[in-house]
């Protein structure tokens, strides 16, 4: 799988309350959910994103709550992938489980600027910054996780693996 998209760059310890404030957790409508991504610090974020855009962040992206809405809001906005120096573990699981590629790439923030265009090769672990020509290598996703991503998330994956659930 090769993904190409424009970078939205964030810092370290971007927590789930920043990504999706608790007061909006009761919302179930996907479009409405998407409109509250980063609502407290960047109310117009949802208007600025184009499908395929890539979130780049420093260490511990998505720390805090287990709220899946903090992943779903980005997925519903059309974010194509998250590339961070590290990703908090529940956030990482949630991203994989909803079919949003979550990639850990040390030092990524030193090599990427806001608005750069990135090309990600999920199988080989190559990352090309098309705006600067810089190439980076990340640890490719384990085959088990890549299969979930290819299926579009854990639920379609379960349906594929077990024909009785189709």
């Amino acid at each position: 799988m090769v993904l190409t998209g424009r970078v939205w760059k964030f810092g370290t310890n971007i927590n789930t309350d920043i990504i999706y404030p608790g007061k909006f957790l009761k919302i179930t409508d996907p479009t409405q959910m998407a409109s509250y991504a980063f609502a407290s610090i960047y109310p117009d974020f949802h208007k600025s994103v184009t499908p395929g855009d890539i979130i780049v962040a420093g260490r511990n992206f998505g720390c805090g709550s287990s709220r899946e809405q903090a992943v779903l809001c980005l997925k519903h906005l059309g974010i194509g992938a998250i590339v961070a120096e590290s990703i908090a573990r529940i956030y990482y699981r949630n991203a994989i489980n909803v079919g949003l590629p979550a990639i850990i790439c040390p030092n990524i923030t030193a090599h990427v600027n806001n608005g750069d265009i990135l090309e990600l090769h999920l199988e080989s672990g190559q990352l090309l910054n098309k705006s600067t020509g810089v190439k980076l290598q990340f640890t490719p996703l384990p085959p088990f996780i890549l299969n979930i991503i290819r299926s579009g998330g854990l639920i379609p994956y379960l349906r594929t693996c077990n024909p009785s659930r189709r």
Partner: peptide, 18 residues
Amino acid sequence: TGVGATDMAAVWATGELW
């Protein structure tokens, strides 16, 4: 340990979790 909603849906259906 904490998990997400999709994880939990899979557990409800299968009793298993990766």
